[in-house]
Design a protein around this nucleic acid. Structure first.
Lengths: 125, 125
DNA sequence: TCTTCTGTTATATAAAATATAACACAACTA
DNA sequence: TAGTTGTGTTATATTTTATATAACAGAAGA
């Protein structure tokens, strides 16, 4: 998977990294049990500090996307409470859709976007 | 409109405030041309610093949700490029839905959430 | 045993969020 | 018209967060 970081973005580097990896799991670029690159390797590839990658991995661990093993590194292991995730997602959607609604983006347009995105994510269904 | 701030959240105060106001516009708690409370008044009501409210208003101005008048304060005036908004929303949805997909939340469940949220936002349609 | 790979920890620096205080301008009021 | 009060603005300081540098500790493999 190609991880792309935008250095001009106002989003923190470790947040961008976290997002890309979560998308990577959703698009099956990363599979359950697979190891992510080591913090040094990834930091080197991207051209950022090792500790920034480490922070992204720590967040992913806290959120339940990976398990970190001192020997093997960060292993994909999704363990998230469904109901809680559903609640969080609803809150996040409320914010995103509010902006959409203000801009006269219709419900149907949003549905279309969802379908578009799920073509990449939910390929097995 | 009741603006609720979570002081335990890891989200910056001004971001929470910005989100609540955008949701307020979407739910028609605030209407085009209406003035938001003054920075001091709102800061006092919520119990945060005036400058934090000011930052939220500045962000809303940059994003095209309000116009700030030195005399009258912040006035709701939505002026956002639709195509650009659509792009941004898609990017944001990708991140939110990736998490959902990892948690086995189906496309149909997301559609249902969208409909639920749009009941509050798109009441005129 | 030595080298090399992992993540971790400690510390320092840079950037961003929040707070305090003084300012400038306009509107209202007496 | 002078004074008071309401706006947002600006300057500055403080606190918190993000990022960077360097040394560490444990495990794997030659």
């Amino acid at each position: 998977m190609v991880i792309e970081i935008d250095f001009n973005s106002d989003e923190a580097l470790y947040v961008q990294l976290r997002n890309q990896i979560v998308i990577g799991i959703a698009t099956r670029s990363f599979h359950e049990g697979e190891a992510l690159p080591s913090v040094r390797q990834l930091a080197d590839t991207i051209g950022i500090n090792m500790h920034t990658v480490n922070k992204a991995y720590t967040v992913l661990k806290q959120e339940g996307f990976v398990k970190v093993d001192r020997r093997k590194g960060a292993i994909i292991a999704v363990d998230i409470d469904r109901l809680r995730a559903l609640e969080e997602i609803k809150k996040e959607l409320q914010v995103v859709l509010a902006k959409g609604s203000c801009t006269d983006i219709s419900k149907e347009e949003v549905h279309a976007l969802i379908d578009e995105i799920y073509e990449d994510y939910g390929g097995l269904e």
